[in-house]
Nucleic acid binder design. Structure first.
Length: 343
DNA sequence: AAAACGGGGAC
DNA sequence: GTCCCAGTTTT
């Protein structure tokens, strides 16, 4: 049996059941693929179910506000996905009469849809013979064929894309693409690969050369940068606080937060007290909520976070009632604080 | 070509 | 701690 035949045979027995595998509706396939970008199924599944329930059709998503979409996306990360999701929904609903493009090349033009996602939708929904190339596929191909080109370089990408396309089952690209991804996710795993029960073992290059744990090759990421965040949690006598929307490019764009002072290093109590004295010009009580910095770790940044509680009679600017806080999409580090603080 | 972009899970 | 995840966009 060929690599491809072996794989589809394995899939016919070991296929996992997911809600997006019971449909070829491009809206739902697209939605699942965006949610699952750089996201494990275990984490993404509840979000998929929530989105389908809240927005059953692309038109429902198109009519929503960005704030509502971001709120439903809250906690999933990579928030540009949610912004692009909403933009594309509006584009499809209002300019394409609610009909998704039906080819790889047209799908690729949609915001948030790259090579992987266009291939996935084109193959799963329209049987177009385009091989997907995701983290699972890199791993399976690199090991089986013994390819040590780094997967996160342009040259490596070309090698693997050609290899992926060469081995695609052009008669059934939908099944093949899902088979190789499922195989990578459950059998040919990053660590502790299940070689002892692998149907491809006799022809696997990495297994025969003892290099399973060394493949695929990936250029290491840089060390994350340290940043120091001071969130100002205003608290007035009439149970109000202040939130603001992050407007700039960068992390958490368009999410909400307590007013933020970023400092070069840890901000001393007195430095903040003096600064607020001159800015507020009213009586207030300042205290640090967390004695230890909350270190919120992102892929490229470690955020050393302090939450400062500012009690005063009246807010210095327009605020919102504490009761409304739960309606705003906030970063996880803020959501954790809100739960812990319990207002 | 490299960097930016989140958060959670496995080990 | 380190690595990875049904990647895409921006610089």
């Amino acid at each position: 049996m060929t690599f491809t035949e072996n794989l589809t045979s394995w899939y016919s027995v070991n296929k996992r059941d997911f809600p997006w595998r019971n449909t070829t509706d491009p809206y739902r396939i697209w939605l699942s693929e965006i949610i699952l970008q750089q996201t494990q199924i275990k984490q993404g599944l509840p979000y998929y179910q929530a989105f389908v329930k809240r927005f059953p059709k692309v038109y429902d998503l198109a009519q929503a506000s960005q704030d509502d979409v971001l709120k439903l996306w809250q906690g999933l990360g990579y928030y540009s996905r949610a912004r692009n999701l909403h933009e594309t929904a509006k584009h499809v609903a209002f300019e394409l009469d609610g009909v998704f493009p039906t080819s790889y090349s047209e799908l690729l033009k949609l915001k948030g849809v790259g090579d992987y996602t266009a291939s996935a939708i084109a193959s799963i929904c329209f049987n177009e013979p385009k091989a997907v190339l995701d983290g699972n596929v890199y791993r399976v191909l690199s090991r089986y064929f013994g390819v040590d080109a780094p997967i996160n370089t342009t040259s490596g990408f070309k090698v693997f894309r050609a290899l992926a396309q060469d081995n695609l089952d052009v008669q059934n690209p939908a099944m093949y693409n899902q088979a190789i991804m499922d195989f990578g996710a459950t059998q040919c795993t990053p660590k502790k690969a299940a070689c002892n029960t692998c149907p491809l073992i006799t022809a696997c290059t990495a297994y025969s050369t003892g290099t399973v744990s060394e493949l695929p090759v990936k250029i290491k990421a840089k060390k994350p940068k340290n940043r120091y965040f001071n969130f100002l949690v205003y608290l007035s006598k009439d149970k109000k606080t202040i939130v603001e929307q992050r407007k700039a490019n960068g992390i958490w764009k368009h999410l909400y937060q307590f007013p933020l002072i970023e400092s070069e290093k840890a901000l001393p109590y007195n430095a903040l007290k003096d600064r607020l004295d001159s800015e507020l010009k009213v009586d207030f009580d300042l205290r640090l909520y967390n004695k230890q910095d909350v270190v919120h770790k992102l892929s490229h940044q470690h955020l050393h976070t302090k939450f400062w509680i500012i009690d005063l009679n009246q807010l210095p600017q327009k605020g919102i009632s504490i009761a409304q806080l739960s309606h705003y999409a906030v970063p996880v580090v803020i959501e954790n604080f809100i739960k812990d603080f319990n207002f």
